[in-house]
Computed example of a mutant assay.
Amino acid sequence: MKALAIGLMSGTSLDGLDICLAEFEKQDKWAFQILKSETLSYSEDWENKLRNSIHLSAEDLLELHSEYGFYLGQQVKEFIHKHRVEGISLIASHGHTVFHQPKRKFTLQIGDGRAIKLETGLPVIYDFRSQDVLLQGNGAPLVPIGDELLFAQYSACLNLGGFSNISLQSGDKRIAFDIAPVNIVLNHLAQQLHKSFDENGALAEKGTVNESLLNQLNALDFYQHSHPKSLGVEWCNQHIFPVLENIEALDALATFTEHAAQQICNVINQYSLKDILITGGGAYNTFLIEKIRAKTKAEVIIPEKKIINYKEALIFAFMGVLKMNNEINVLSSATGSSYDHSSGVIA
């Protein structure tokens, strides 16, 4: 069985829209090949719209949901035309997360999949998280199904995006959970120094770790809970950003980088992991990676760029393929939902 699919991913750190065209084939087990991929940076206007979406009225948010759906459709249509791609089975869109409150039974990723379908004329699978939340799950992380079926050769997969999340085999089941914020905080602090992000961790390296703040961060309640668990921007607004306001940006960067590395390595060491595949934008933060390497004996593997950049978009494309075949694409052992299920809305 073969399928050609496009995956769309927009992360909380607003780095841009990831588009990944991949071919999937199943014989004894699943295999994949990334054929084309690119990241489209958001215009200042779109970045502001998405960043401020959490503050919109219900009517304005619904308008943005449609508008962003048409935007996604237009970008995919241009991508298909540019690369002269034919024979696409489906588009799978993560959308852009505005609200994520699983305890209150809702999560919202905007970008109406029906608008994407109207623009492209292709089947679209979207809204992958809501069903899991309704099934008492966290609606996150969803990527572990791809880790289990496409990246099983590694002891664990660690994604360093807006938040860090890990997926690993524990006994006979795959578990996964968010560990700590990463780029959503580091980018915010870098922007105070007129940089869009902390390239290679060079700014953090200049700062001094504030031990008192570090202890305060490490003592946050979230870190004491066992999995499954997930984080959202609301949590950062409540617990992280306020305590970083009274400290120099360079020192805040140094302290938060140290905090993220400590929390990540606590998990790696807790599970005695042999090796760990690191992807997401944080894989390029050499200062953070050095700190992780220094705090654990696990082999830290940084793969080729297209896997670093597009693993999440790749796996959402794969989740779309699984959904179209009515196969399980969300693991309850990862999200805490009532049972494994096949999630996503088909347009």
Rank of each mutant, 00 (worst) to 15 (best):
M1E: 12
M1V: 13
K2T: 12
I6Y: 01
G7D: 01
L8P: 08
T12W: 07
D18L: 08
C20E: 06
C20T: 07
E25W: 04
Q27S: 14
D28N: 14
A31N: 15
Q33D: 12
L35A: 10
T39C: 06
E44C: 12
E47L: 13
N48C: 10
H55T: 13
L56Y: 11
S57M: 04
A58I: 11
L64C: 04
S66K: 13
Y68C: 04
F70S: 15
Q75C: 13
Q75P: 07
V76C: 01
E78C: 11
I80W: 00
I80Q: 01
K82E: 10
G87T: 06
I88Y: 09
I88K: 03
L90S: 15
A92Q: 11
A92L: 12
A92S: 14
G95P: 12
H96D: 11
V98Y: 13
V98D: 13
F99W: 10
K103T: 14
K105W: 07
G111I: 04
D112G: 07
A115Y: 08
L122F: 02
V124F: 00
I125L: 06
F128L: 11
F128T: 05
S130D: 07
Q131S: 12
D132R: 08
L134H: 13
Q136A: 15
G137V: 07
N138G: 14
N138Q: 15
G146D: 06
L149Y: 14
L150T: 07
S155H: 10
S155V: 06
L160Y: 00
G161C: 04
S167C: 04
G171K: 09
A176D: 05
F177N: 07
I179M: 10
A180F: 08
A180C: 15
A180R: 08
V182R: 00
V182Y: 01
N183Q: 03
N183M: 02
V185W: 00
L189S: 05
L189M: 03
A190D: 04
S196R: 14
E199K: 12
K206M: 08
S212V: 15
L213K: 05
N218C: 15
N218Y: 14
Q224W: 14
H225N: 15
H225K: 15
S226K: 15
H227P: 15
L231A: 05
V233G: 12
W235K: 02
C236Y: 13
C236W: 11
Q238V: 13
F241E: 06
L244E: 06
E245D: 14
N246Y: 09
L250N: 05
D251T: 01
A252F: 08
L253K: 01
L253Y: 03
L253R: 01
T255R: 04
T257A: 06
E258W: 01
E258I: 02
H259G: 05
A260Y: 11
Q263E: 14
I264W: 09
I264E: 10
I268K: 06
L273W: 10
D275P: 08
D275H: 04
I276D: 02
I278Y: 05
G281R: 02
I289K: 00
E290A: 00
K291N: 03
A294L: 08
A298S: 06
K306I: 08
I307C: 03
N309D: 15
K311Q: 07
K311R: 11
E312P: 04
A313T: 02
F318C: 08
M319W: 05
L322H: 06
N325P: 09
N325F: 07
N326C: 09
E327S: 13
I328L: 10
N329L: 07
V330E: 11
S332P: 10
G336T: 10
S338N: 14
G344S: 14
